[in-house]
């Protein structure tokens, strides 16, 4: 866990350009980039993002659907957690399940 002075660094995957929208509360999957045994631990959240991280925000790295890291680092503020077991169907669109859980 980052100390109060250090920003926590998360990472997310997006399937299309423009998927991240500033200001909107969005369901997301984040993975924790803090060093240690549990690096890459996944978390389901509702969060807001900004292109430039503000003071109360953690940092967010973004990767595309083929795993390429995009150059821009965003700011992310986690508003609430979503269940780790997202109601959904196997082999179906995970992002639809994420969206449905956020709307409940």
């Amino acid at each position: 866990m980052a100390s109060k002075t250090e920003k926590q660094v998360w990472e997310t995957f997006v399937r299309r350009s423009g998927e991240l929208k500033e200001g909107d509360a969005m369901p997301m999957v984040l993975r924790d980039l803090a060093p240690g045994r549990k690096k890459y631990r996944m978390r389901h959240v509702v969060a807001t993002v900004r292109r430039n991280a503000q003071e109360a925000m953690d940092l967010l790295c973004v990767r595309t659907v083929v795993g390429v890291q995009l150059p821009e680092t965003w700011g992310v503020k986690i508003l609430r957690d979503l269940p780790i077991e997202l109601p959904g169907k196997p082999y179906r669109d995970f992002y639809e399940a994420l969206k449905a859980a956020a709307e409940k």
């Binding site: 996944m42 659907v65 077991e85 997202l86 169907k89 196997p90 995970f94």
Partner: peptide, 19 residues
């Protein structure tokens, strides 16, 4: 049977990570 999680992408046996 009734839960979903993110899986992949992953660099696979064909020699590429295809998304």
């Amino acid at each position: 049977p009734n839960a979903s999680g993110l899986e992949g992408p992953y660099g696979e046996y064909p020699g590429y990570r295809t998304g």
